[in-house]
Each structure stands twice: as C-alpha cells, then as structure tokens.
Amino acid sequence: MTNPFPFSAIVGQDEMKTAMILTAIDPGIGGVLVFGDRGTGKSTAVRALAALLPPIKVVKGCPVNSETAAQVPGWANLTSHKTAMVPTPVVDLPLGVTEDRVTGALDIEKALTKGEKAFQAGLLARANRGYLYIDEVNLLEDHIVDLLLDVAQSGENVVEREGLSIRHPARFVLVGSGNPEEGELRPQLLDRFGLSVEVASPKDIDTRVEVIRRRDAFENDNSAFMLRWQAEDAAIRERILTARKGIKSLKAPEQTLRDVAELCLALGSDGLRGELTLLKAARAFAAWREDTAIGRDHIRAVAAMSLRHRLRRDPLDEAGSGARVSRVVQDVLA
C-alpha cells in the first residue's frame, strides 16, 4: 500500500486528532502520548499525520534537516548547499533499537574500510524539525528512554563516544503510543509529552459500521477514496497554516493566566510544565478555531489532554485521571 489511510477519514477519536493538530500548529507544545487498546487507530493516525503536515525547506542532503546553509553542521561534509522543499519528517523509532541507531555513532563502515573517523547520524538527527514516533512506547528499554528524556528536554543531541565529540540540534515532536495494560510509562517520560489522550473502540454500532465501510472503501476503491479524503486533508493543512500565522497575534489575558494557574494548583500537578503546556495548547486551540482571544472555552477543551498525565497517581482511585481533571475544571472554571 503506497498511501497511508488519510487522517481526515479516521472515524471519531476526536480528542486524538485534535491533539495531533495542536502539535502541528505549535510544535512547542511538545508531543502527544496516545494510550489505548489495540486496533483503535493509533498507528493509523500517526502514519497519516505526515500527509497532513506542511512541507519544510531543508538544505539538500543535510543529515539534520537544516533550514539554511549556515546551520549545516561541519561534520556533514556537504559540498552543495541547495535547498529543497520536503515533507515534514516523521521518523519511526522501533522497539529494540540500539543506542547507536538513536544517537548516531562512529561510522564503522568507514572506520574499518577507509580508516576514517566519521560520524554516522542517527534517528534523532533525522527527526530534527519533524516528528519522532515510538509505537509501544511503554515497552521501550530504559536506556533508550533515558537518552530520549535528555534530548527531548534540551533539543540538542550530544554524542561523546568512541573518540567522537559531536553535538547537533534535535528538536522534534515526540509521539508515543501504547497499550497501558502491557506496562506503565515512567513518570519522567510521561511528563515530557505535552498532551496525553486515551483512545477506546467506539461503542455504538453506527460508528463501527462507518469504520468498516471507510476501511473497505480504502482498500477496494483506493483512488476514488483517496481523491475525496486527500482534499479534506488539504483543507486541514490549510487551516493549520492559517492557525500558525494567527497564533502569533494571540495574547493571553491576565484572567486566562490566572485560570490556568488556579487549575493546576487545584489539581496538584507536579512542576510548572503543566501550566505552560495548558496555556500553549489553549492558544493553539484558539488559533485553530480562528478565535481572536483565548477564553475559558479553550482551556476547558484542552485541560484534560494537557494535564491528565501530570497528576500524582493515586492507585486507589478507580475513576482514572481524566475524570479527576474534568471534575476540577468544572469546579474552578464554574
């Protein structure tokens, strides 16, 4: 199958789709975590994301997708500095990947055959200015998680190994998905994701029928199906571009800042990252809706996805943290 299933053709799962669109509008929000059972469209949504994102300008052949010739790192040894428009990179980080592949390492081929000390860029370099997708993120090995934590925080990948000393920018939006029944995610990594959404299978028959119908059409009448939905995807892409322009002029009124702070205080979320993410997400959401000011509606809409993974876990609470957030939102923003 050459084309992935179109993003706009995914039935339901509105929270997940909104979260992904918000990170496309403002990459500074810092990633999406999608938790849910198998077969709920998690991987489909991420693979469809690439088609949704506007293309970026890069220097041709640059291992870290630099925008201008001045940003190309010296170790890349590029001779020409022509630029080209390419799709936003969406890089897969498979489970069981080695540290070398992630950070980059000494190029063994060149070392052994030519005796040259050269750097072979890793996945983090390729994901710069794009998305890094980790399926089954909760099963990722600890030492890879540690690496990611550090880089996701600083936006820079530092390689000090095998006689190499190299640093390069690695700013990417982290997208993770997984099934919580198979393992928990370490709180530190949880905190690095800006937004967190929970997906479940649709419970009503009509929605399920629609899922089957669209998937069937996708597989059996691919060209007509793609024609219809790629137009929808293009419309979303246009709106993302408009929102990216609009977001710069959006000011957060004093009252909004106060609301955000009160909300996080009432929930007892750790650290200040909660407040910052909530504000950014609300601003992106306002831009998406093409509103002129950030209001309580916007905060309400994004509160659950920005905060539910930042609460102290209470093992004896049955309802789940999403419910706790919406309870508090109702109280605070009454």
Binding site: R38, A200, S201, R208, V209
Partner: peptide
C-alpha cells in the same frame, strides 16, 4: 458485521 463484533466482545477494528 459491526453488530457481530460487538456481540463477540471484540474491540479492535482489525
């Protein structure tokens, strides 16, 4: 078919 998946308690769309 959709009804059948619900009645068999299958959540996955696959």
């Amino acid at each position: 078919l959709a009804t059948a998946t619900v009645q068999l308690g299958i959540d996955s769309a696959r």
